[in-house]
C-alpha cells in the first residue's frame, strides 16, 4: 500500500507538471501561430514603398513591380545560373531561381527619397536606426544586420550616416 502511494505521488508530480506544460504549451504554440495568420510582418520584414508591398522570397513579376529602368545579369564563373538585377528609380531588386520560379532575394536602396517600412532612409544617422530597430543587431565592421525569420535588414553606417540599406532574404 505504502509503495503504491509513493509511486502515485511521483507519477502525479510528473503528470501534473506535464499537464501544466500542456496548458502553457498550447498557449505558447497557438499565440505565434495566430499572429502569423493575422500579420506576417511580426515574424518577417516586409518592405512597403508607397502602396507597393515588396515581400522577400515571393515570386518576382514585372506586372507587379513595373518595368525596370535597367536590367543586368551577372553570371558566376563556371556555373550556370545568373544573379539578376532590376534597377528602378529608387531601388534595385535582385532575384534568385527557386524551383524554376524567379523570387525576390533582396531590395537595395538607391535614393534617400524612399524609406524602410519603419521610416528610416539613406542619410539618416545611427541613432535613428537604433531608436527604430533597437540594439539587437549583429555588427560586422560597418554593417548592422537585423534578422527576423528568413529576412533581414542590413544597414551600413559610415561616419554616423546610413550609406546603405538592403532588405535580404535567406535562401537555404
Amino acid at each position: 500500500m505504502n509503495k503504491k502511494i509513493i509511486i502515485s505521488i511521483l507519477l502525479l508530480l510528473v503528470v501534473s507538471i506535464g499537464a501544466i506544460e500542456v496548458a502553457v504549451g498550447f498557449k505558447g504554440e497557438s499565440n505565434p501561430k495566430k499572429e502569423e495568420e493575422k500579420d506576417n510582418s511580426n515574424s518577417e520584414y516586409v518592405l512597403k514603398i508607397n502602396n507597393l508591398e515588396i515581400k522577400l522570397g515571393s515570386e518576382f513579376s514585372r506586372e507587379k513591380y513595373g518595368t525596370e529602368l535597367e536590367y543586368s545579369e551577372i553570371p558566376s564563373c563556371a556555373f550556370e545560373g545568373l544573379d539578376k538585377t532590376y534597377t528602378y528609380e529608387y531601388y534595385e531588386i535582385n532575384t534568385f531561381e527557386d524551383n524554376g520560379k524567379e523570387k525576390i532575394l533582396s531590395v537595395y536602396f538607391l535614393d534617400p527619397n524612399i524609406t524602410t517600412t519603419e521610416n528610416v532612409s539613406l542619410g539618416d544617422d545611427l541613432e535613428k536606426m537604433t531608436s527604430t530597430y533597437g540594439t539587437n543587431y549583429e555588427k560586422n565592421d560597418n554593417l548592422y544586420t537585423y534578422k527576423k525569420g528568413k529576412t533581414s535588414i542590413e544597414f551600413i553606417v559610415e561616419n554616423d550616416t546610413i550609406t546603405s540599406i538592403e532588405y535580404k532574404y535567406v535562401t537555404d
Partner: peptide, 17 residues
C-alpha cells in the same frame, strides 16, 4: 493510461497526447 502518459512525457511534452 497513466503508463502511456508517462511514455508520452518521456518523449517530450508535445507527445503526451
Amino acid at each position: 493510461i497513466i503508463t502511456f502518459l508517462v511514455s508520452g512525457f518521456w518523449h517530450g511534452t508535445t507527445y503526451i497526447l
